[in-house]
Structures are given as structure tokens and as C-alpha cells.
């Protein structure tokens, strides 16, 4: 007979918290796996009462949503954690932030509203800011115009199954440019597709349509993730939970 763990099963999840965090500075070079490891260890150091899965190798209940690629910074990474004991979201945020290395910063924490749907369902696009050192703003603007004038621009992308051509134009919902002499900035909203189209794919598309070749690697920051609404805005995925909370508090206040 295979051994079974002694004792009762682990305590169930009694509260779900959703967090937004940033990866900044040199830690933009962390991969999703690196961040996941760091977060799990930080949760232990911060003594957050995590709920665990059952069995001999129990895992803390954490789910990650849409991780930014290695090398890209982000102000809008999301995860959800399940707790075995109720906690004040702000206290969890502060404790976790304090125990993470500088550069992985926890910005917000809200309680998931009952029946409000999953976090993943509230994200279908991302807004990026891409710095292009050594590229003049005018040059970038012309390249972006050329890109937007096309319906499809295929770029070669490395995937699990080797190189394949991916359309990097289709998922671009909007794009604009800015910056100053010597460093152009691309603002772009990209829809979530499979395989993912990332800022470097968009930059590759600019090379394809306008021969734009940045002399040094572009630096991308994900500024927001969420549902793309009719006006082209990326909505805050924690908004519904925050509103539900406010409603709930309002009802309490009314009583």
C-alpha cells in the first residue's frame, strides 16, 4: 500500500486575495518561474496563512495571470492567492511587499468578490510603453504609420515548436508615439492571442514594414492589463472586486 499523509486534510481556502505587483529595474530580467519562486518564498517569510493543496507535496494556492516576458518590466502583473485564515488585504500587501526583494513591489491587494468571475476572464489586452534608445521620434512615428496601414505583418517567432510566422499587426489595437531626440517611445495596446504577441514582436514588425532597426535593445514596460473596452481603454481588472467591496461596506454602513 502506498503511504498516505497522516492526520486531517489541509484547511480549506476561506478567502481569496488578488494582487497587482510590479517588476522593475534590473529585476525585469526575471522570468515568470523566477518570480513565482520568489513570491512563494516571500509569502512564507511574511507568514501569510496560505491554503495548501492536499497530498504529500502540498502546494500553496497561488494562481498567476499572464506573466510579462523575461526582460520586460511591468507595472501590472496579477496573481490570486487562497488563504486558510482571513486577513486584512492591506496588511498582506504590506507584509508581502516588505519581504520581497526591491524591484518586485506589491502595489495593490483586494479581496476577490464572491461570484465575480475569474481574474483571467478580466484580462484580454495589455498596454505597453516601449523605449527605443537611439531611435528618433519622427522615424518611429513613420514606421508606426506604416504598420497601422497594413492588415497583417508576419514576423518569425520562436515558439515551443520551433520558429513560426505570427501576425504581429492583427492584435495591435492601437499605437502611438512620443519621446524626445535620441529616444523614441512607442505606446501600444496589444490584444491577448495565442501565441502571444509581445513588444519585441511589434518592434520586429516595424523592422519588416519600415526597416526600423534600433541600435540597442528596446526597453518595454507593461503599464496595464485588462479588458479592452469599446473606447480602446484597458480596464482595471481589480475594479469589479473593489466596487463589490465598496457596495458591501456601504450596506454595512446603512445597517
Amino acid at each position: 500500500m502506498a503511504r498516505q499523509p497522516d492526520g486531517p486534510p489541509p484547511p480549506p481556502t476561506v478567502q481569496k486575495l488578488r494582487l497587482r505587483y510590479a517588476k522593475r529595474g534590473p529585476l525585469r530580467f526575471a522570468s515568470h518561474r523566477d518570480l513565482a519562486r520568489a513570491l512563494e518564498r516571500a509569502l512564507r517569510r511574511a507568514q501569510v496563512p496560505m491554503a495548501f493543496s492536499a497530498g504529500f507535496s502540498p502546494h500553496p494556492k497561488i494562481s498567476y495571470v499572464g506573466a510579462a516576458p523575461t526582460g520586460a518590466a511591468s507595472e501590472a502583473e496579477y496573481l490570486e492567492i487562497g488563504l486558510a485564515r482571513r486577513c486584512d488585504p492591506e496588511q498582506v500587501r504590506a507584509a508581502l511587499d516588505a519581504s520581497l526583494p526591491a524591484g518586485v513591489d506589491v502595489l495593490e491587494c483586494v479581496e476577490a468578490a464572491e461570484g465575480g468571475g475569474s481574474l483571467a476572464d478580466r484580462i484580454d489586452a495589455a498596454r505597453w510603453r516601449v523605449e527605443l534608445p537611439g531611435v528618433e521620434p519622427g522615424v518611429l512615428a513613420a514606421a508606426v504609420d506604416a504598420l497601422l496601414a497594413r492588415d497583417e505583418v508576419l514576423v518569425a517567432k520562436r515558439t515551443k515548436n520551433g520558429l513560426r510566422d505570427v501576425d504581429a499587426r492583427g492584435p495591435v489595437a492601437s499605437a502611438s508615439t512620443g519621446g524626445e531626440a535620441g529616444c523614441a517611445i512607442l505606446h501600444v495596446v496589444v490584444r491577448q492571442v495565442t501565441p502571444a504577441v509581445r513588444p519585441d514582436d511589434v518592434v520586429a514588425a516595424l523592422a519588416a514594414v519600415a526597416d526600423l532597426r534600433p541600435p540597442s535593445p528596446p526597453r518595454a514596460v507593461r503599464e496595464a492589463q485588462g479588458r479592452l473596452d469599446g473606447s480602446g481603454t484597458v480596464a482595471d481588472p481589480l475594479g469589479p472586486d473593489r466596487e463589490a467591496r465598496a457596495r458591501c461596506q456601504g450596506e454595512h454602513a446603512a445597517v
Binding site: G25, L27, P101, R219
Partner: peptide
């Protein structure tokens, strides 16, 4: 700028706990 072009750049940035 060099780190953006190499494998596993995280190993060169320090900042460990």
C-alpha cells in the same frame, strides 16, 4: 543593453534576498 541579448539574464543582475 547586453543582458537583453543573452540566455538567463537574471543570473547577472544580483539583487538576491
Amino acid at each position: 543593453p547586453l543582458l537583453a541579448q543573452v540566455q538567463k539574464p537574471i543570473q547577472y543582475v544580483g539583487g538576491e534576498l
